[in-house]
Design a protein around this nucleic acid. Sequence first.
DNA 1: TCGACGCGC
DNA 2: TGGGATGCGCGTCGAT
Length: 955
Amino acid sequence: MSDVLDPAPETLAEIPREPTQDGPKVRLYLVDGSGYIFRAYHALPPLTRKSDGLPVGAVAGFCNMLWKLLVDMRKEADAPTHLAVVFDHSEKTFRNDLYDQYKAHRPPAPEDLVPQFPLVREATKAFGVPCLELPGYEADDLIAAYACKVRDGGGEVVIVSSDKDLMQLVGPNVSMLDTMKNVKIGPEQVLEKFGVPPEKVVDVQALCGDSVDNVPGAPGIGIKTAAQLIQEYGDLDTLLARAGEIKQPKRRETLIAFADQIRLSRELVKLDCDTPLPAPIDELAVEDPGPPLAEFLEKMEFRTLARRVAEGFGGAEARAPSPAPEMRAPPKPQHGPIDVEAYQCVRDIPTLEAWIARAREAGIVAFDTETDALSSASAALCGVSLAVAPGEACYIPVGHEHDGDGGLEFERKEDLAQIPCEEVIARLKPLLEDPSVLKVAQNAKYDLAVLLRHGIDVAPIDDTMLVSFALEGGLRKSHGMDELSKQWLEHEPISFKKVAGTGKTQKSFKHVDLAAATCYAAEDADVTLRLYEHLRPRLAAEGLLTVYETLERPMPKVLVEMELAGVKVDPEQLRLLSNDFSVRMAELEAEAHRLAGRPFNLGSPKQIGDILFKEMGLASGRTTATGAASTDASMLEDLAAQGHELPRVLLDWRQLSKLKGTYTDALVEAISPATGRVHTSFQLAAASTGRLASTDPNLQNIPIRTEEGRKIRRAFIAEPGNVLISADYSQIELRLLAHIGDIPQLKKAFQEGLDIHAMTASEMFGVPVEGMPAETRRRAKAINFGIVYGISAFGLANQLNIPREEAGAYIKTYFERFPGIRTYMDRQQRQVRAEGFVTTIFGRKVHIPAARGKSQAERSFADRAAINAPIQGAAADVMRRAMIRMPGALKAAGLKARMLLQVHDELVFEAPEAEADEVIRIACQVMEKAAEPVVSLSVPLVVEARAAANWDEAH
DNA sequence: TCGACGCGC
DNA sequence: TGGGATGCGCGTCGAT
């Protein structure tokens, strides 16, 4: 153990360090002005100048971006020394001489965008930033020329754009920055996008072409095929020269026939470093904006930004963004065996400081917290483990004690001297909050919550569980550390049972002796780091980096805040309900016994089956999966409808039993004595579609459908002076189906805000919406939902209580009226059977391994899941995007409101009464725009929100 | 530990 | 051919 702190091993030496510079180095930021205007225009709501209605949305977005860039970057180690905004000069460029159809299909700029072009140039000048443009060239050419020049002169370039056409320029000392999504684009992101490194992007683009710019490429070859071909043959010239060797006949012929067109396409996409520079680099040096900026903002009536500018640089807004760890060199895989005896137990401050120094040097540290209980909201810290390289890990105990009741007097007690908890926290805090040191954890949400209660706001953080989930959601049920370790490291970690015992003899972790605790805890950190090194590189390689970064990685922090906030529940109300239910259940039980002629357990489906079908001789209908007679609600309903008394009594008893057992009793138990509120736990890696799950207690299945059930919802309340606000997406899954399946009638109905179920009914049955019978609409509604779930005629017949033939006819009519649905279903089915997974419009992969299963039944289950997953998954993605943006949006508006719960298409907030209207406004706006800017939906998302004293009335 | 059941979206 | 026959979860209870 003594050699643990010896000089850094090889893996540490490979982490790149900031180079030492002798003279001032040029660091040039090039903003793609033209690209930015269009994105800002489409991403932002249309904004007009109050005084005269001049459209200024894109200008406002542009100004905010430029200001943020100037302020943020100034705090950074990599602040720009030089800065310029680059514009397209004219419609015609030298590329039109090469190919007269280049960009020929571009629609003209929207009417309300045109007047904003000159304003953006004016804005740039007001900021004191040079505008670059050159007749006959595109902005991209100028960006390329400046980037090459500065890079070759030993400087560094950051291109502020997300245009894929610029990705060919990425490389050493040239990166891209997408300020709208706040992500850096380096070689890894380019690899994810194009499947090849930046220097081969041009070859891939030449093959697949670009419909937006009207670059022809090779017909029938998309980005995946192109990347595959380039990978195989090395480069485009080799590929074209050896095209005759390609096995697939179609591809071979295409490449031979279109070789010239492909070469032309390469000329069109290739950016030329030799473009003349309209201004020398010296003239691009960064300067502070002067009085013209204030004048310009005043003229535009951008009051918020004007105020910020007046407050000057270094305003409260300015905070360094966390670094993008993906810009680091990928860690070297490590296969050394895991030796739990080699870990160090840290019990003095110099040793602790030495570990902290090593973590800083490495730039990455895996960590894990040990606590004395399971609930992160209340558990006390026992210790923290760190791993700085594979096999190099330690455990820092802070809360271990002797077991109070154990041991005889003469038993020698272990020396438990530890560094005081506050001391450890104080020293770890700067490390764990250091933006330049990446922290890695398994199920980071837990550790985040524990440390947040000790005043540490851990960041930046990566989560191996979520990396695994992004890669393999649906492939495995659990993304727990033990399973991942066994599979990827071929190592079975020490089980918690082994160190703490099990059942009655299980002890709290704080009573585990330090040697055993060190082996167990440090191993977790070690395994986490090794898993990270194994799994992380796969994200980019498999095209899932963006999914992880945008849909997974930001979530733990958001959820921790919700879980710690908790929701207030009125225990008195629940106890009253519980008593009421008890009394009525006792009455129903007596009645049931009387009707059966003997006592029996009403909670036992088996006994109910015996009584109904054997003793009373009723005709048993369906059976369960195991062959037992079904006694579920629909069965009992059928029997009750036949006039039997007992089934009705059983149904009533079951309803009360369910409400009492699952809700009223359990919820009272779940109220935290410390906060008086209920703190659920949200699971991120539970549902393969990306939905969250809620446990301990589950607050996503609180009753709503029946009056008795709603009484439980009424017990969810706000603190005095506050209200609960519920905001839910209206029909989000059907809307997404309309978009994904491209169903014109559905899209039109949503765009026009029609009653979607009535429209469906009208379309199917040929009856007008006006005066439509309720039953007709109800049937259409059931079909709409059935379609989303991949229903069959049998299922629909069951649902609607109609003959199977009739249900079959409905489905047939539906497919005839909406042919897009059939196409969509077939597409998903083929996809899942070919690849074993389907994908949401946001890129999330949902694996459905049963699609390749043996039995027909297994595969048809998979088919239905494949139909549902892209819809349910896209809805889950939209909701995650909204949740990630919500805390910032509320804070920016100066509101105290907090998000408390998520129920798949609903968010619940608590806010001071006076804030209610504003919270509703912001919540709706964030939720309705959540898909943007990455996905432009062809249907609007609509959110309905209400504030009230309890959840029932708010919903 | 498993199956049946029932609550939610 | 014909059986099986709506997606995703979690918690409770009884039976084993």
